[in-house]
Computed example of a mutant assay.
Amino acid sequence: MSAQHRTTVPGAPGSLARSRPRYGEFVIKAVLLAAAMVSVATTIGIVIALLEPTVEFFASVSLGEFFGSTDWGPLFNPPAFGVWPLIVATVEITLIAVVVAVPLGLAAAIYLSEYATSRTRKIFKPVLEVLAGVPTVVFGFFALTFVTPLLRDVFPFLDLDGKNALAAGLLVGVMIIPIVASLSEDSMAAVPNGLREGSYALGASKMLTSVRVVVPAAFSGIVAAIILAVSRAAGETMIVAIAGGFKSVFTLYPGNEMATMAAFIAQAGSGDASVGSIAYKTIFAVGSLLFVITFAMNYLSARMVQKYREVYD
């Protein structure tokens, strides 16, 4: 074949090697890289914004006082900086939310993945995900004006405060159901059909196949969905502020009013603490603690996915 023919054959390797640079691809790569760096830059910016006031706070308040006391009142006289009331309230409301969201979310995911027809799935999954778009302030007022009175009528022996952790936790759980359900369903849908067919061939029922085969095969994605939902619940602000209250009291009873870390930040950020004061810097100290907790949970999620993904590849 002549050299002229080698250079004019469309799609030939030689013609690709001598093609002109595709500047459009370079632009697209640069745009995608910039988009990926936005989240990294945002995280770095948050750390920088929290670091200096947090260091200044702990220069005045010792770690022993911060983590070793159960009295919290930065605006009291004398002030108290024991953060355990906020931690306990955050953990308590998050646990209530998990108890609500994980069973319901997994049940919804199993139904959509294993039982629902494609038409039903196309209808119900978007409807379920719309729940995640409801403003959290709506959930908060719903918990305050409907859920708490309902709980008082149905369970009068609970002795609930007007604002309480139980109602707040229940609605936070409802809020994170779409996270658990949607992400878990995506993981289950990615399980190869060969695993299901092998289970059916051994005589297993659809329910047994779903629980004993599909769920374990999608375990890494399910764990990641649950931890992501827990992180979302721990950082929720409006529901816990409206329905849970701002009372910073060390208590384990969910019927009492209590303030989470996020609720305290919302209250103090719009309260009477003057900028630069030690009470104002508590916002950044508590925010840093919440950031570390959320970051640790997300890191745990990534590690769990990495560990168990290899088993089912």
Rank of each mutant, 00 (worst) to 15 (best):
P178F: 12
L131C: 12
F76P: 00
V98I: 15
G24N: 07
L150K: 02
D272P: 04
A285I: 06
A89Q: 07
P216K: 10
S288W: 00
D153H: 11
A41M: 15
E236S: 03
N193H: 13
F57P: 04
M37E: 09
I283A: 01
A89C: 06
E52Q: 14
S220T: 09
V9E: 14
K307Q: 13
L112T: 10
T120F: 05
A262I: 10
T117W: 03
G198V: 12
V292D: 00
V98M: 13
R119V: 14
E92V: 09
M238T: 06
L150Q: 08
N193W: 08
F246P: 00
I110T: 12
I293Q: 03
A263W: 08
E310I: 15
V213N: 04
Y253L: 05
L51Q: 01
L63N: 01
R303I: 13
L171Q: 07
L50P: 09
R152Q: 15
V31R: 11
G11T: 09
P156G: 09
S69H: 06
V275T: 09
A225H: 09
T8Y: 00
T282Q: 06
G24C: 04
G255L: 10
F66P: 02
K29R: 14
I110H: 02
L131A: 12
I87P: 07
A302R: 14
V38K: 05
V134F: 11
S288P: 04
V134D: 06
V130Y: 13
K125G: 01
S301V: 12
D161K: 07
